[in-house]
Amino acid sequence: MDNIKIERTERTPEVNFDFSRNTFVLRGESYPENVPKFYGDPIKQLQEHLNNLEDGQVSFDFDLVYFNSTSAKVIINLFETLDAAAERGLDVTINWHYDADDDNSAELGEEFGEDLESANFKLCPRD
């Protein structure tokens, strides 16, 4: 599967999905005009890739400064997808990056992380 690299814009985050190394990154701001269209291809491919993986390590970095409500739903769905992959036996780690002085973002990450049953979750404050 070809890696996916989408540069960030004012409204959309950088998408860096490295399928050969199983490292996945969303970085920047997320409030696309059309959220399902923007995330459609990368997430479908990610789901397909994870379904085909039998074992190994997977890391997903959420490094988002701002995201709107629909993007939040995408993130929740991604958490569920990753948790399901971990339940199947993959070693999945989710890294939640946030500004050290941004309590809201830290709290939101914690809330998202609470629902995980199998994947590892790490809060990563930015300096």
Binding site: G40, K44, K73
Partner: peptide, 8 residues
């Protein structure tokens, strides 16, 4: 391809 956010 568009994503169905509420597929489940």
């Amino acid at each position: 391809m568009s994503l169905e956010l509420f597929e489940d």
